[in-house]
């Protein structure tokens, strides 16, 4: 192909990048805060997970999708999702093992007086991990539509 002049080079905006860079640690902190405080405020694992996912999307919009795809390892996403499921299942089934119902937190009270609260937090964290990884995964998948997926990310 003999087109010498490439279409105008697109450069990411410094302003957007810097703003996102400054804001992102606080947004992620807020996401985790929401995850940990599901019991006594509006929020919880689902909302926190979505905000955490939004942090990654924000980076992707500022820095470019491909750059972010390289940064976010597919295996990390897969590990997050499966780790979340495992936490959820372990806490839930643990209660059954102790003679209660699925996710019956007060079965754990013999360990420590506030154990049921920690149980809830752990489950929220698990849900948050699942939601965040699914949100990021879906986003990268949708953004990569039409691109050749290289490597063996298929099993994720």
């Amino acid at each position: 192909m003999s087109a010498d002049d490439q279409p105008g080079l697109y450069v990411e905006s410094t302003i957007i990048m810097t703003t996102v860079r400054v804001v992102s640690p606080f947004v992620l902190t807020f996401a985790l805060f929401v995850m940990f405080h599901g019991a006594d405020s509006p929020g919880g694992g689902f909302q926190g997970g979505v905000i955490a996912g939004a942090t990654v999307m924000m980076l992707a919009f500022a820095y470019g999708i491909e750059t972010t795809r390289e940064w976010v390892d597919v295996r990390v996403i897969a590990a997050l999702a499966s780790g979340g499921v495992l936490t959820f299942a372990a806490i839930g089934l643990g209660a059954i093992a102790l003679g209660g119902n699925f996710l019956q937190y007060n079965e754990y009270l013999f360990i420590y007086e506030e154990a049921s609260k920690y149980g809830i937090e752990l489950v929220e964290l698990g849900i948050g991990a699942i939601v965040a990884s699914v949100a990021i995964g879906l986003f990268l998948l949708a953004a990569g539509y039409g691109h050749v997926v290289d490597g063996e990310g298929g099993e994720a």
Partner: peptide, 27 residues
């Protein structure tokens, strides 16, 4: 808290949009 999340989404919308229009056929 809700307002904070809404503000975040509002910002996300704007920068996402600037990306979507600019980079058709690109990234």
């Amino acid at each position: 808290d809700i307002a904070l999340v809404y503000a975040l989404l509002n910002f996300l919308l704007s920068i996402a949009f600037s990306k979507f229009t600019v980079e058709r056929g690109g990234v």
